[in-house]
């Protein structure tokens, strides 16, 4: 079963302002889509609507052709979401953080896999260090290690490049392209150009004022 996420005539209003209106979107296997727009244009809100976190919007979201409100748990079982917060517990080590993620996502917990994933994001030697002692970029890398650790069809990444150095950005762009090649799909908000990704699709949220 390949992947299909579809939005039909989405409209979301916040404080008398339409963040987006009449928005249509289709995401299939192999797509990498970048959501663009100025600050406050509703990029994060759109991501949350598309993965079922925000439901009080007009329009419809379909996962594999079924309305999201009916198949929400199926979508969540195939989703990897990295939000604004890194989702890393400051007083736990990188390894302990990842093991928790493995457990709550229903995968078999394996320290070896966690260590391998941490190695891939350049955190060799920092596995047992409490996250609070790591830099912001390193904490972000713990979150990014989940991309290597838990295989999911749909990646929804909200500003994943924050605090990541140039080398890390290149590696992450490559990872996104690789994920798309393997039949996954990526929704990402970022101000980076993502030049290394072929066939990058873009969606621009302009933001418009609601008619009074």
């Amino acid at each position: 079963m390949s992947l299909s996420l579809e939005a039909r005539q989405l409209a979301c209003e916040r404080d008398g302002r339409w963040l987006f209106r009449g928005l249509d979107l289709t995401l299939n296997a192999g797509d990498v889509m970048r959501i663009e727009g100025p600050n406050g244009s509703g990029k994060t809100t759109l991501l949350k609507v598309l993965c079922g976190q925000i439901v009080d919007v007009e329009g419809e979201v379909l996962w594999q052709g079924e309305p999201l409100r009916r198949v929400r748990s199926e979508l969540l079982a195939n989703l990897l979401y990295l939000g604004h917060g890194a989702g890393v517990k400051a007083h736990l080590s990188a390894l302990e953080n990842l093991r928790w993620y493995q457990a709550i996502s229903g995968d078999q917990v394996s320290s070896r896999d966690c260590e391998l994933a941490l190695a891939r994001v350049g955190l060799v030697g920092f596995e047992e260090v409490p996250a609070i002692q790591l830099s912001a970029g390193q904490q972000r890398r713990i979150a990014l290690a989940r991309l290597h650790l838990t295989p999911r069809l749909l990646w929804v990444l909200d500003e994943p490049f924050i605090a990541i150095d140039a080398e890390g950005v290149a590696a992450l762009e490559q990872l996104l392209a690789e994920h798309a090649r393997r039949g996954g799909a990526v929704l990402v908000t970022t101000h980076h150009a993502l030049e290394r990704i072929e066939g990058l699709r873009s969606l621009r949220l302009a933001g418009e004022v609601a008619a009074a």
């Binding site: 993965c51 976190q53 748990s73 199926e74 969540l76 079982a77 989703l79 979401y81 939000g83 604004h84 917060g85 890194a86 989702g87 890393v88 517990k89 400051a90 993620y101 709550i104 996502s105 229903g106």
Partner: peptide
């Protein structure tokens, strides 16, 4: 809530 793990807990299929 502050470190974002609550959001992740709510995004599990459980």
């Amino acid at each position: 809530h502050d470190d974002g793990t609550l959001e992740q807990l709510m995004l599990t299929p459980h």
